[in-house]
Nucleic acid binder design. Structure first.
Lengths: 212, 212
DNA sequence: CCGCTAATCATACGATTGTATAATTTCTCG
DNA sequence: CGAGAAATTATACAATCGTATGATTAGCGG
């Protein structure tokens, strides 16, 4: 006589995949990549460990899907937060704020990014995903920069736009990195303010910190 | 009748520790933290796996020592590359170049940093090591900024110096990160040039790219 | 309402992990 | 030059890893 097998309900494959992906991301963000074992992931998703290989042909495939989902969500959230109307300057200011506040900028996101770096370096598919999303964000930033500069009567050349986008992106990345690694080393709002004035200085503009 | 045990020579404890640390760093940089198993580390160091627990009370202690050694080496190398004489502006320009070229800025270093980041978050000892080294570099940068600004007749307040140091450090970190993650996405010397002009813009100075 | 299919659970398996311990070799010192 | 201490190797061990497989149950079509 053995213990009864626990009951369960069937669910949509898409829902199950999303649950597994979410659990994997949570574990990697919280305790690093080595914490995301098949048992821990299944447990966190409230499923048995067999489900991972039922919905993904291998654990690595699940991790790849998780990375893709994470990057997609970040970029989509950033895009959605930008006001459709208003000045280009306001939109530029807004993307700076969004990039330097949770959920884009926080220890969890930084930890997650670090967890994926090695896979990015080795796996060509993940590398392609990374490059695509990085360039998409930088292009978005570059378009905002070009528009903001034009708005204030300072048109920039193509090469200059590229350099400015790389520079401003670096400021955001650097502040994002430092804020994520040492959250309490900075006063609330300090990183956003520094980001705002630094981008202003680099572009030769005056961004309003109050801009939404 | 069994195979003869392989011969060995005794060595200085410091040399052995350095060999194990170096092997651990190599493995983590190349294939990620999960590749740095006790067997792989000992193998790469040309020793048997027992040596790890003979020289370190646990594997985690070895990893901590490796992180400390890595950070120390980076900061020391950066410091050593700065000219003792010359203008403060030249020294500032120099630290930008050093921070954005190998061996400080390359995929290996980025990979290594990523491997350590989640340990930094969880382990208080590693967190302290990180915070100490990060602030030491930022203080160095800040002192150079203050000196360079004073040199050009623009004294800065204490609070302004802190903000400028954070901003310039962010530029360097961001370019370091992007260059490490996508090395071939940038032309040779491009990141250094962008770093130089960005820092110049943030500080309101004119740094010479030719400065040694 | 019943049986069939597939989703789900449970468990097993070999490989690998960090750690512990025993067996050996090297070197130092009287 | 020979014995004792320390360094080093080799092996064992329990835990855990990703994967594989078989048993069971939920939900749907007849």
């Amino acid at each position: 006589m053995s213990a009864p097998r626990r009951s369960f309900t069937r669910d949509d494959p898409e829902t199950r995949r999303a649950a597994l992906i979410g659990a994997a991301l949570d574990l990697m963000a919280e305790d690093g990549p080595q914490a995301a074992t098949v048992r821990a992931i299944a447990d966190a998703a409230g499923l048995s460990q067999g489900m991972i290989r039922h919905y993904f042909s291998t654990k690595e495939e699940l991790i790849n899907a998780a990375y893709q989902a994470h990057m997609e969500a970040q970029l989509t959230a950033t895009r959605a937060s930008l006001p459709a109307d208003g000045t280009a300057m306001a939109r530029l200011a807004r993307i700076i704020t969004v990039s330097l506040t949770p959920p884009v900028s926080d220890p969890r996101t930084l930890s997650l990014w670090a967890a994926f770096i090695h896979m990015i370096r080795r796996d060509p598919a993940m590398r392609a995903t990374h490059e695509r999303n990085y360039l998409r964000f930088r292009d978005l930033l570059e378009s905002l920069i070009v528009a903001a500069c034009a708005e204030s009567g300072r048109p920039v050349s193509k090469e200059e736009a590229r350099r400015l986008a790389i520079a401003c992106n670096a400021v955001l990345d650097g502040l994002w990195l430092e804020g994520g690694a040492l959250p309490e080393a900075f006063a609330p709002g300090e990183l956003e303010q520094i980001g705002m004035t630094s981008v202003s200085a680099i572009l030769g503009l005056t961004l309003d910190c109050e801009a939404t």
